[in-house]
Design a protein around this nucleic acid. Structure first.
Length: 887
RNA sequence: GCGGGCGUGGCGAAACUGGUAACCGCACAGGACUUAAAAUCCUGCGUCCUCAGUGACUUACGGGUUCGACCCCCGUCGCCCGCACCA
């Protein structure tokens, strides 16, 4: 091959060899690393910029979705660095979690070994991408060094009263002998074992996130660089509601109880009440069941139904009359029955409600089933009080009160206030009959997991002293290495020695807490640790306060609620304990779309074998796309675009692209075309197109390097050279703005435009037809082009820059500055509309006043013709935009 | 059920948020170069028509507001996401 190439280059002196990314990319990566260009200093006086992508779980290999995420962050990091910021762009590993233990059980490999091997593999994969990461700050959450600090934080939180231990209902997998998160329960069964999940009462550790519910809700308003969608999701998750606690007197005492407390957001409908409903595990229900075997049986049934999520969704409303009666707060002669109902949850409010069938669909379904009265108390404006009735659709809108005695005629909100005011004055058992109460859907965060591969909770159980924190001097509580996974359950629990420890208070034999922390704890503060990853304390407050908040956080929408909410809570808790001095960790948030790919099945679309893209050949026949299985030659059904997954085999690995085309092509393709928040479809054609463009840039620049050698870059204002300079400066401005807005697809479209605009002038230069002004303008434009591609195709940019004679690296050069005079044209071309339809153009001096524009427009042929000699009714001139003549 | 989003050429999309609808790319078609192919370069590419114009139509569909609507308002249809017996 070398001989042929030599021949070619002799024949065409300007021809250049194709750019070879496989040779160039490692060279430039080494050059950046040697100069430590991406290692951020905590003492740099430049303004800071912290860009962070959600760190990966070391599952085995980097997924193409990861590379899209990190490429976006990298473009921002490289751009901000060029703009003169001190950029922090770190990377680490969210390394604790179930998959490592599952691997241990299946493949007899220690979770630690499995995890660190995966990290080593994935780190190398990331390095191939040429990301401008500060590897000096790398850590994994399973490093003792990291979880040591997490234990310190935990103890600080305990001291501040931010941690509690309480009993709560959990999903328990009896086969794996562990607690499952709600997401891990599928149709009532454990996602791994397939065993029927039980509800168990377990004593667990909780972070008191509910203490911050109001603040977490209120502060969403200030997060103006967050997607509205994410804020809304968090708002719904926190779920604030304003209502009234109402204490209803029991008609007669039940085992010493003489009131029933309910929570309602609709006290205005109190005269529409027709029954009370309490949860199956409400104390009153339990007491009533003691003397009522039928009721006990019903409660048992409800409990069992409750375990299956699927059953819950379709369950019909069921109730059981306890025989207990309550008295209406406004009418001593009015009693209402108390039911145990399957749709009332003990976890929300007080576990008891009053049912107002006319204005709540569930209550209505229930009332209709059990023949309870349905009395409308709110009617829509204009309805007739005498005839308005509710049959099987509850009325939940606004209106005016009816059938409600002294409330009649008021609005529901007036009635709400009136009921609250009156009941607050009445008393029952020395307490007011009602009080206003804000309720949240948000629950405290249960962090106990009966797992090995997590951060040990640094607490000790002593028979005499109770639960005692591990003294800070004794930290870290290290995970023992000698564990076995032969049996299900938590290996820490059955370890021969690990759990035995002396009580730090009394010195007697005690035992360690064997639960470990939820892995969401690990990811709730890693962004703060990056600011001083080697500090002895969890943070170096000075460094943390200087770097934080993260200016731009980028990751998947799947973390919209849990991870982001927990991190917001953690930052507040860390502020409380003096580790940071801010509440909101992420100033800007961006949620990127997924990388999707077509799916292929041999034969049938519903049951055929899944085929990988590499097993399929695509062909176009009569404009129709068809697919054939390479091995068999048989027809393949092309399925819809789906998230890449192993089960559907529609995955493309980063190496598939980097091995052939190089990292720059992969980076460029993943950011072109689709807006970053939307899904992008991976196609071979698209990747090939990106690679073509990369070669085209190389040809353009290397040709220019020969013909423009020694030419001084100079902007021109007029003529052909002026057009080149204007194009370059306009696009320079636009690309900067687009990157600031993370509109990478638009930035890339602009770069294509610049390359297109430079092609003809550069040909002229190459053919020796260009004057000095054009040569200077072209030289400058090419240099701008190289800097514009640098954030996305950093290796190619370095190669180009070197070819142009640059001595520094592009990675250490400033972003070029556009000349404001060159981005405005002297002339404006107005589209001219007649009655709102475009009929032609008018090109006129930019500074022409409205009178001059109007005069020129009215003189145009097509305007004259349209007006038929009459005067226009109106001429609308929007400066620099458009002219509309109304005939 | 509740909350939110989206719908633009064959495809991914753009339109400075009320001012020329379709930038840029992919695919496709024609041409140049070549013995040939690849690569590269040039041209065309929303639909329709009396194949031409300063033409008609066109942003899911139907209305409205406006000099002017992909953008705002009302209604209909379709797709997607989140939460879900939350009182």
């Amino acid at each position: 091959m070398p001989a042929v190439r030599l021949l070619l280059s002799e024949k065409r002196p300007m021809a250049t060899e194709r750019y070879n990314p496989r040779a160039s990319e490692p060279k430039w990566q080494k050059a950046w690393a040697d100069k430590k260009l991406f290692e951020a200093s905590n003492d740099d006086p430049k303004p800071k910029y912290y860009v962070l992508e959600m760190f990966p779980y070391p599952s085995g290999r980097i997924h193409i979705g990861h590379t899209r995420n990190y490429t976006m962050g990298d473009v921002v990091a490289r751009y901000k660095r060029a703009k003169g910021f001190n950029v922090l762009h770190p990377m680490g590993w969210d390394a604790f979690g179930m998959p490592a233990e599952n691997a241990a059980m299946q493949n007899k490999v220690h979770p630690k070994e499995w995890t660190y091997q995966n990290i080593a593999t994935m780190r190398e994969q990331l390095k191939v991408m040429g990301l401008s990461l500060d590897w000096a700050r790398e850590f994994a959450t399973c490093d003792v060094d990291y979880y040591h600090r997490q234990q310190m934080l935990f103890l600080d939180f305990v001291e501040k009263g931010l941690v509690t231990r309480k009993s709560s209902k959990v999903n328990w997998d009896p086969e794996d002998m562990t607690v499952l998160a709600n997401e891990q329960v599928i149709d009532g069964r454990g996602w791994r074992s397939g065993a029927l999940v039980e509800q168990r009462e377990l004593t667990q550790w909780f972070f008191k996130i509910t203490d911050y519910a109001q603040d977490l809700l209120d502060s969403l308003d200030g997060l103006n660089e967050w997607p509205e969608k994410v804020k809304l999701m968090q708002q719904n998750w926190i779920g604030r509601s304003e209502g009234l606690l109402v204490r209803w007197p029991l008609a007669s005492d039940v085992a010493g109880e003489h009131e029933l407390e309910v929570y309602t957001t609709r006290p205005d409908t109190i005269f529409g009440a027709s029954f009370m409903a309490i949860a199956a595990d409400h104390p009153l229900a339990k007491k009533a069941a003691e003397t009522n075997p039928e009721l006990a049986k019903f409660i048992d049934e409800v409990r069992h139904m409750g375990t299956s999520v699927a059953a819950l969704e379709t369950a019909e409303k069921k109730g059981f009359d306890t025989g207990i009666r309550v008295v209406h707060p406004f009418d001593d002669s009015w009693t209402l029955p108390v039911y145990v109902a399957n749709f009332v949850l003990m976890e929300y409010g007080t576990g008891a409600i009053f049912g107002c069938p006319a204005h709540d669909q569930r209550d209505l379904d229930f009332a209709n089933k059990y023949g309870l009265p349905v009395v409308p108390v709110v009617m829509p404006e204009g309805a007739d009080k005498a005839t308005f009735q509710v049959i099987d659709v509850a009325y939940t809108d606004d209106g005016s009160m009816i059938n409600s005695r002294f409330l009649d005629g008021k609005s529901p909100s007036q009635a709400f206030d009136e009921v609250a005011r009156l009941l607050e004055q009445k008393t029952i058992g020395n307490r007011p009959m009602a009080e206003r109460k804000v309720n949240f859907r948000l629950r405290d965060w249960g962090i106990s997991r009966q797992r090995y591969w997590g951060c040990p909770i640094p607490m000790i159980h002593c028979e005499d002293c109770g639960v005692v924190p591990v003294p800070k001097a004794d930290l870290p509580v290290k995970l023992p290495d000698d564990v076995d996974f032969d049996r299900p359950g938590n290996p820490l629990d059955r370890h021969p020695t690990w759990r035995h420890v002396k009580c730090p208070q009394c010195g007697k034999d005690a035992r360690r807490e064997t639960d470990t922390m939820d892995t969401f704890v690990d990811s709730s503060w890693y962004f703060a640790r990056f600011t001083a990853p080697h500090a002895h304390e969890p943070t170096d407050p000075k460094a943390a306060n200087e770097w934080l908040p993260v200016d731009q956080y980028i990751g998947g929408i799947e973390h919209a609620i849990l991870h982001l909410l927990y991190s917001r809570f953690f930052t507040r808790a860390m502020r409380e304990t003096g580790h940071v001095d801010l509440a909101e960790p992420f100033k800007g948030l961006f949620t990127q779309g997924m990388v999707v790919h077509e799916t292929y099945r041999a034969g049938s679309a519903s049951s055929g074998r899944w085929l990988a893209p590499t097993e399929v050949r695509l062909e176009g026949v009569d404009g129709e796309r068809r697919a054939v299985e390479i091995a068999t030659g048989e027809a393949v059904t092309i399925g819809p675009l789906e998230k890449m997954s192993k089960s559907k085999k529609n995955t493309v690995s980063p190496e598939d692209i980097t091995d052939g085309y190089g990292a720059d092509t992969a980076r460029w393709f993943m950011l072109s075309d689709s807006p970053p928040e939307r899904d992008v479809e991976w196609t071979d054609d698209g990747a090939a197109g990106a690679h073509r463009f990369m070669q085209r840039i190389w040809r353009l620049v290397s040709t220019a390097a020969e013909t423009l050698a020694g030419v001084k870059p100079t902007a021109a204002a007029d003529g052909e050279a002026g057009a080149v300079s204007k194009a370059a400066h306009k696009i320079l401005k636009a690309v900067g703005e687009d990157i600031e807005k993370l509109a990478f697809n638009r930035a890339i479209a602009r770069i294509y435009e610049l390359a297109n605009a430079l092609t003809a002038p550069l040909n002229e230069v190459a053919e020796g037809k260009a004057d000095p002004a054009l040569r200077g303008a072209c030289r400058q434009a090419v240099e701008i082009l190289v800097h514009l591609i640098a954030p996305v195709m950093p290796h190619l940019a370095e190669e180009c820059w070197e070819t142009l004679g640059g001595t520094e690296l592009v990675a250490e050069r400033p972003w070029p500055v556009f000349d404001p005079a060159l981005v405005i044209d002297n002339d404006v071309t107005y589209p001219v509309q007649v009655n709102g339809k475009k009929r032609g153009d008018l090109t006129i001096a930019r500074d022409a006043d409205q009178g001059a524009v109007e005069k020129a427009v009215l003189a145009l042929d097509f305007v004259q013709k349209a007006l038929e000699g009459k005067a226009p009714r109106k001429v609308i001139i929007v400066p620099q935009r458009i002219v509309n003549v109304v005939a």
